[in-house]
Nucleic acid binder design. Structure first.
Length: 284
DNA sequence: CTCTGTAATTATCGTG
DNA sequence: CACGATAATTACAGAG
């Protein structure tokens, strides 16, 4: 609240400095990113509201979109690096597990042992580094409320997350690619590789993405605004989330629809990542 | 491959 | 606590 104070609600200046802030935060590390994330969220939230009330000039809107684009691209690049790194780590771990299981013989596929399976070492957190978490939490965001942030809310010990292993990675991809939530086969495979402990398949991931597009409202906009034309939809979404096209400005109402859609996607993520009551029954 | 419709399953909430 | 209603998810079939 105090962030976007008083008189001038939105100047393009705020958006301009955001890019610099972001870069500084990336360099400074996860904690700074977290901070930036909150500022950025607040900024977007306010922007969203102002948009709804048509209080912004086209110029400010453009500036906002351009900044969002910059941040999105930069953030995406970092996320990609993280994803690749963890993918490599995953295959290395898989390899060493294979080797170990040769030693101990047996135990290659065990359908229902989900809780056990202490793998080799890292109790949890194999593929999620602080940076990638912070980035993925914040990437194209708004929604200032405490997103997952493993850093504080669920600290140390048991960091649960017994959900289907893929959803964390899938959601991150989804939110980070909200302007084009259609992973290629390779990208799906990468997500599966990162999360797989046995039963996650590319096919189920494909289903998940289809359902996710439907649930967050992407499918709805696709049908209503683009007559089911996916190319057109992605092009439109890019003009909203990535880079505005001065020659083809997007109607404010459409922008609002996309913002809402993105919010839905993010709240799905929250819903599914938060630790809930039942976890209490797990310990001891 | 994706989209829509839908069945099956699971989690959550209000009530007696 | 157990129940029934409701919401959310996942998987699948049929069509394009």
């Amino acid at each position: 609240m105090e962030l976007l104070s008083s008189t001038t609600p939105y100047s393009s200046l705020q958006f301009q400095s955001a890019t610099d802030d972001f870069l500084r935060a990336v360099v400074a590390g996860p904690k700074a990113l977290e901070e930036f994330s909150q500022k950025w969220s607040a900024l977007q939230k306010g922007f969203s509201l102002a948009t709804a009330e048509s209080k912004l000039t086209q110029q400010t809107i453009s500036m906002a979109a351009v900044t969002a684009n910059d941040i999105s691209i930069l953030g995406q690049s970092f996320v990609d690096l993280q994803v690749q790194a963890s993918s490599i780590e995953a295959s290395l771990r898989a390899e060493s597990e294979a080797i170990l299981s040769n030693f101990f013989g047996s135990d290659s596929k065990k359908p229902n042992s989900r809780l056990s399976k202490p793998s080799l070492q890292s109790p949890r957190h194999p593929t999620s580094t602080p940076i990638s978490n912070a980035l993925a939490n914040m990437l194209p965001q708004e929604n200032g409320r405490g997103t997952i942030s493993m850093t504080e809310s669920a600290q140390s010990s048991s960091d649960p997350n017994p959900l289907p292993e893929f959803i964390e990675h899938a959601y991150k991809f989804f939110v980070a690619n909200i302007f084009n939530p259609y992973p290629t086969r390779e990208e799906k495979q990468a997500i599966v590789d990162q999360s797989n402990t046995g039963r996650v398949t590319v096919n189920s991931l494909t289903n998940w993405f289809t359902n996710a597009r439907r649930r967050c409202g992407w499918a709805d906009i696709l049908k209503r605004r683009c007559d089911g034309d996916r190319e057109e939809m992605v092009d439109l979404a890019k003009r909203v989330f990535v880079q505005p096209d001065p020659k083809r400005p997007v109607d404010e109402r459409v922008i609002a629809e996309f913002m809402e859609m993105k919010e839905n996607a993010e709240s799905m993520y929250e819903r599914n990542t938060r630790v809930s009551s039942w976890i209490d029954e797990l310990d001891d």
